[in-house]
């Protein structure tokens, strides 16, 4: 018994030893800073004042009463839903097309994946030029069709849509590749069996391919949600959160509060809200995912 316990202890110690470097790094760079952010969220402080004022949950109540925060939250949700609704089906469609083994597949694959390799800031700059109401390519093309293009980044109705379109362009190749990898892993035997059972292509796709692809879909859904909630670079470059907050996302709001207005407490509180929101969404997706994700 004693020997068995010792052995267990030894194994447990070995296990801890193996994860120790990772755990130490996580503690230093994630857990401690996150704990510090929780502490900061209870203060009214600009980081440099000698005295920080403890306000309890005051920053949180300020947040939920704040019109700008509500707008940032709503913009983030719109971007999130927009990205999921457009990126995932479109990525899947492209992946299915590329999986058919048509001519030029490799070229298409490279071209579609290209934007993902570009830094978001560079893409943002290019799209700012494309959207320019005076000389931008998009309005020029619309002009050929006698359509007067809008001021894409300068109007409240179009600015968020413009950011969404650019984001879809940037990430489409990434989701396409995830789905393509998933499709190429779908067992040919299953497809053959379905064909022998008399299933047509559509039935095979819906009842064999798609369930087999569910782990990829699930992964893409979670990543897409997180990515949407972290939207910052393109907003920083293309709109600066404007006009009048029309494209301010949660992360941009945090940046604005923290580093433009020096409200470190409010920015930290908003960061905590973002963390809780993402954790909740991911938990919800995992729970729901259990119902439809088919793990092999």
């Amino acid at each position: 018994m004693i020997i068995k316990n010792r052995l267990l202890l030894h194994n447990a110690l070995a296990g801890w030893l193996f994860i120790l470097p990772g755990l130490a790094a996580l503690t230093l760079f994630v857990f401690i800073p996150a704990g510090y952010v929780v502490f900061l969220s209870l203060l009214r402080w600009n980081l440099i004042d000698v005295n920080a004022q403890f306000v309890g949950l005051g920053n949180y109540s300020h947040l939920f009463a704040s019109q700008s925060f509500q707008q940032a939250l709503s913009n983030t949700l719109i971007l999130g839903v927009g990205q999921i609704v457009i990126l995932l089906p479109l990525g899947l469609l492209l992946a299915v097309l590329l999986d058919m083994g048509l001519r030029g597949t490799r070229i298409y694959r490279t071209v579609m994946f290209g934007p993902y390799v570009l830094p978001l800031v560079a893409s943002g700059l290019v799209w700012t030029l494309l959207y320019n109401p005076g000389f931008g390519l998009i309005n020029q093309v619309l002009g050929w069709a006698h359509i007067s293009g809008p001021d894409w980044l300068g109007s409240s109705g179009f600015a968020l849509l413009a950011v969404l379109i650019m984001t879809v362009w940037q990430y489409l190749g990434y989701y396409m590749l995830i789905f393509l990898g998933g499709l190429q892993n779908v067992s040919a035997v299953l497809k053959e069996a379905a064909a022998i059972d008399g299933a047509n292509d559509r039935q095979t796709f819906w009842h064999v391919t798609l369930p087999a692809l569910s782990p990829s879909l699930f992964f893409a859904l979670i990543i897409c949600t997180i990515q949407a909630f972290q939207t910052f670079d393109q907003v920083y470059v293309m709109t600066g959160g404007g006009p009048d907050g029309a494209t301010t996302t949660l992360v941009y709001y945090i940046f604005d509060e923290g580093f433009q207005m020096y409200n470190i407490g409010t920015a930290s509180a908003a960061s905590m809200v973002l963390l809780v929101l993402l954790a909740l969404l991911t938990w919800l997706q995992v729970r729901l995912g259990r119902r439809w994700v088919v793990e092999e």
Partner: peptide, 23 residues
């Protein structure tokens, strides 16, 4: 005011509302 930079952020948004969006 040490809070002035924050005030200016609200003003900048409002100016975008007035000029960009004709509010």
């Amino acid at each position: 005011s040490p809070q002035y930079l924050s005030v200016l952020q609200y003003v900048q948004n409002a100016l975008q509302g007035v000029f960009d969006l004709r509010q």
